[in-house]
């Protein structure tokens, strides 16, 4: 037996021993493929989202606590305050939408209000007012209405301790050193115009 053959057989041996037969899996039922991916980079995670199919029409108020993808038609308001609503390319919503996140690829006739983000994708059509913390509108999306951003007040940082004693600051001022400018921005304030 040559050295090469021996080593080859030795390499193969552990593999044979480690291979264990897989337990017999129960027969799976045929599950129809979802038309939406479970995860895409574009829309984020849509795992577990309920889908309203293309041929479905709902008339009335829709509310719930799970993500929803509308590929069909909804005539009425949709309220998913803690979740994401996606209006698919073939989706049509005639009514107001309130959700944590709203993504529109289809058509919406009604106001959109999101506590976080609203995304209106290319070729989407939205007629209504939009209110969100982060409105995102792609080029060539049709949008008609008012846009208003929701401002979130960040907690004010604690005042920084003095870096230098007052005497040193006074000496620096006397030497003509530029004084630090402190400018506080509040949601509706304008930057101060300085001469």
């Amino acid at each position: 037996m040559s050295m090469w053959n021996r080593s080859k057989k030795e390499d193969e041996l552990p593999q044979r021993h480690t291979i264990t037969p897989a337990p017999a899996e129960p027969a799976k039922e045929a599950i129809p493929m979802a038309t939406y991916p479970t995860k895409t980079a574009e829309f984020g995670t849509t795992r577990g989202a309920a889908v309203l199919g293309r041929s479905l029409l709902i008339t009335g108020h829709v509310t719930g606590k799970e993500d929803l993808i509308v590929d069909g038609r909804v005539e009425g308001d949709i309220e998913l305050l803690e979740n994401r609503l996606t209006v698919g390319a073939s989706g049509h919503v005639q009514g107001g939408i309130r959700a944590r996140e709203i993504v529109v690829l289809g058509t919406v006739q009604g106001n959109l209000e999101a506590s976080e983000r609203v995304e209106i994708k290319k070729n989407a059509r939205v007629v209504g007012d939009l209110k969100a913390q982060r409105p995102v509108i792609e080029d060539e999306a049709y949008f008609k209405g008012n846009v208003e951003t929701i401002r979130v007040d960040k907690p004010k940082p604690a005042p920084a301790p003095a870096l230098a004693p007052e005497g040193a600051q006074a000496a620096a001022a006397a030497q003509g050193a530029p004084r630090p400018v402190q400018q506080t921005m509040t949601p509706n304030s304008k930057p101060e115009s300085r001469p």
Partner: peptide, 12 residues
Amino acid sequence: VTGLGHRLYAED
């Protein structure tokens, strides 16, 4: 426009 605290009405 919204960064300055205004409302923007858009129409193509």
